[in-house]
């Protein structure tokens, strides 16, 4: 992290607001069910499809489960999948990006070709097929999204490493007699890695959108587990869509708010890391 990063980040108003909103949201996801004694799996046979009322602040779903409780549970699962799969993508993408950018030859071009292949094929189709084949447990979905998400960070890192490699400080390190491995890890990597923080934020929001789409189709997180995506699935029925907005609207709004906030944080990190970008 460069000097002054935090100060510049604090001056990026949307990013700062987003961090606060995200923190409040995570706190609410974990604390609300405990404070209000809510359980996402308890069905209340006397209160099915009820609109918001005392006791069920956001109403109930078709089996009488508390929407607020499911919203919190679904949020935890959606965030868990988003953050976990983004970390997995980084874990795979960073070493591969280093090899692709730092070396020349067979392995480098093989990695580039394979990432071309993954980037040019619709991710949703690959995700759908793999989830159908390997099962749709929460950690399974996280793993699949993580594994399929590696090309973006790998491409970013390799492009950065390649442009850093041409700079004069690398030449001077070479003249000092440093080995290639030393130069790659101690000189180039620290200078090339900072844009990956932004990439991490965008991978999280992308995975959350993919997961919600998958669950919306019924192929992702399976009931009785909740996710913001599968809560919106009920809205495919016209009756629910028009007469019971409390069953699907909150999940959609939560998803959009968190995706917007995560994207803003990513932009804030990018602008704070490289003030020159903002001047352009």
């Amino acid at each position: 992290m460069r000097k002054g990063f935090l100060r510049r980040f604090m001056h990026h108003v949307p990013a700062l607001v987003s961090v606060i909103v995200l923190l409040l949201m995570v706190l609410a996801l974990f604390l609300l069910p405990v404070i209000l004694h809510l359980d996402p799996y308890t069905t209340d046979m006397l209160a099915m499809n009820k609109s918001p009322r005392p006791g069920h602040i956001l109403g109930t779903d078709a089996t009488g489960r508390n929407i607020l409780a499911r919203l919190c549970e679904g949020g935890k699962i959606s965030l868990y999948i988003g953050v976990g799969s983004a970390l997995i993508s980084m874990l795979i993408g960073i070493p591969l990006g280093l090899i692709a950018g730092g070396t020349k030859g067979f392995w480098s071009s093989l990695i580039m070709r394979i990432s071309d292949m993954f980037l040019s094929f619709p991710a949703m189709i690959l995700v759908l097929v793999s989830v159908a084949m390997f099962g749709s447990s929460v950690s399974g979905i996280m793993l699949i999204l993580g594994i399929l998400g590696w090309p973006a960070p790998a491409r970013l890192l390799s492009a950065n490493v390649m442009s850093e490699r041409e700079k004069s400080y690398v030449m001077s390190a070479k003249l000092l007699g440093r080995s290639n491995t030393y130069i790659l890890f101690h000189c180039i990597l620290p200078n090339a890695i900072s844009p990956l923080w932004t990439s991490l934020a965008f991978r999280i929001s992308q995975s959350m959108i993919l997961e919600s789409g998958l669950s919306f189709l019924g192929a992702g997180v399976q009931p009785p587990l909740a996710s913001w995506g599968n809560m919106m699935q009920s809205a495919t029925s016209l009756v629910v869509l028009t007469t019971r907005p409390w069953q699907w609207l909150p999940a959609g709004l939560c998803l959009i708010v968190s995706v917007i906030c995560i994207n803003f944080v990513g932009e804030g990190i990018r602008d704070a890391l490289d003030p020159r970008l903002k001047l352009n």
Partner: peptide, 10 residues
């Protein structure tokens, strides 16, 4: 970039 297309569809 931020609104999932199924939500927009709904």
């Amino acid at each position: 970039a931020s609104v999932p297309n199924f939500f927009l569809s709904l």
